[in-house]
Design a protein around this nucleic acid. Structure first.
Lengths: 130, 130
DNA sequence: CAGGATCCACACGGATACTG
DNA sequence: CAGTATCCGTGTGGATCCTG
């Protein structure tokens, strides 16, 4: 994983925080996890429901992502032994608690994404002139 | 227990937020970006300084990551035309503004990562019995 | 309906060698 | 010192077909 050499040790607390952030990003930083967690915020949903809500996700990735979230204790999976089968996915308390910091990121994105796009265009133009 | 709240069409604003979150994660959700942003929080640093601070990053990835951060307007790159060359990387205001929501994630990680690990172990044991 | 199984493309990222 | 260039393994994720 991330081994940190203790050369020029900055603020130790900051150091710890960095590693924690990296860890959590390694779990939820993939393409779909956070999106699904946010979409499940309003209550339980079925497999194909989520698939439609997300839009653009393959059922393979939805399966894998949901399994990962369940494994990490962020989501519960409830099977109704009916025909046809029905499976509900719902946030756990842990999963719900994640929504807040993620919304913080969302706020930031909402506010600053335009600046990023602008910086990008400028940068690309500058490089292009070379 | 599972009384089904009517299948609510998700709040459009929330939907927007989800997209925004996905967008921002697509930019900073990689392996190194956030780590570097956090480490640059205490002021400008040179290339190899950052390399040492991060620990375990190849110079290739450091170059690419810094270039990406610069492109997105999160970091400035200042070249001193000396011999040997010296290049300083520093957070922009935009980059600094990102630290807060990221720290929120860090707080969450600090608090809940143990639960995740625990859920993981339990899940793996349960699957193993199959 | 809710997946499992397969195949495959490509982006991500590590290792190494070289340069102004 | 601060990169570039190149090679290459791996993981991530899409597409497709199959099943209880």
């Amino acid at each position: 994983m991330l081994e940190h050499k203790e050369v020029t040790v900055p603020d130790p607390r900051l150091h710890v925080d960095c590693r924690k952030v990296s860890q959590v990003l390694a779990r939820i930083g993939d393409k779909w996890s956070v999106l699904i967690v946010m979409l499940l915020g309003d209550g339980p949903h079925r497999f194909n429901e989520i698939k439609r809500m997300v839009g653009g996700i393959s059922q393979r990735m939805l399966t894998l992502t949901l399994k990962g979230l369940e494994r990490d204790g962020l989501v519960t999976r409830t099977v109704f032994p009916t025909i046809p089968p029905r499976v509900d996915y719902e946030l756990t308390d842990l999963g719900r608690s994640l929504r807040e910091p993620v919304l913080g990121l969302g706020q930031w994105a909402q506010t600053h994404m335009a600046e990023i796009e602008e910086a990008r265009v400028k940068f690309d133009r500058r490089v292009e002139r070379t």
